[in-house]
Nucleic acid binder design. Structure first.
Lengths: 130, 130
DNA sequence: ATTGATCTACGAATATTTTCGTAACAAATG
DNA sequence: CATTTGTTACGAAAATATTCGTAGATCAAT
């Protein structure tokens, strides 16, 4: 397993990763301004966090201009998967479908999304028949 | 919202809650023995954690005999929901169905479980037609 | 050139979480 | 009854995570 990162972002780090995954890339100020909406921390706090994340290999950055531009260095998918696995393990008695039911239950999903899920379920069933 | 607990169990606390939800109730030793399998910490560490959790209102306990018996004081479902919501928010761009797809993707689910999910999807669709 | 705004770097203080040693007590064992 | 075993309580150390003040650099506008 070459890409198997056993990296464990902290709570705050995940918030920053989330923002960068969505934006693609951004400066400390970009990230900070979004973060501020839901949190309250100073600018240098966000800066420091992102610097630490860069040291840890969680973020890449372009320092060619004065204002550095950051982006996530770990994939959203693999991080999602890792977090899901732990969550299923500790809080959902090891049952992925229990998690799925719970997630579907409380979030109003669009018809389009539901269709996508259904379609996916069919694909899974097809595969398992083989 | 009367029961709206804004309680945020830590990582270790979640592990203990998970065990107690599954067992129903147990002594410190019970919990510790299970915990030991995946972690390595001393007995008094587990004890201390459970004491703190009791102080915080995360666990109930029966002290009528020398060896205390603990059980979870917060519901598994509401905790699951709270964690899911945060996760969807920070890591899944706010999309519950994205989480569902990811969860289905990597965990091999039994046919029975898949059926249950399908059935649930139908129920949701029915409700939304109203 | 001087000022002001903005940025990075860095160190350190705070806060939080986790870990464990030690003491006191009770129950079981010999 | 003395000893060993298992338990709780408690305090504090250790490890981690978060926050921020301050200094120095860069750049733009006066």
């Amino acid at each position: 397993m070459s890409t198997a990162k056993n990296i464990k972002p902290t709570e705050s780090e995940l918030e920053i990763l989330g923002i960068l995954w969505e934006k693609g890339s951004g400066t400390v100020r970009d990230v900070h301004e979004i973060l501020e909406k839901s949190k309250d921390a100073g600018y240098t706090t966000t800066l420091k966090l992102m610097q630490i994340m860069h040291e840890k290999g969680l973020l890449k950055r372009d320092t060619s201009s004065k204002t550095h531009v950051y982006e996530a260095a770990i994939s959203q998918e693999s991080t999602q998967q890792q977090l899901l696995n732990k969550m299923i393990d500790t809080v959902f008695n090891g049952s992925a479908s229990q998690l799925v039911l719970q997630a579907l239950g409380n979030h109003r999903s669009s018809q389009e999304e539901l269709d996508k899920i259904k379609q996916y379920l069919n694909e899974i069933e097809q595969q398992q028949k083989k």
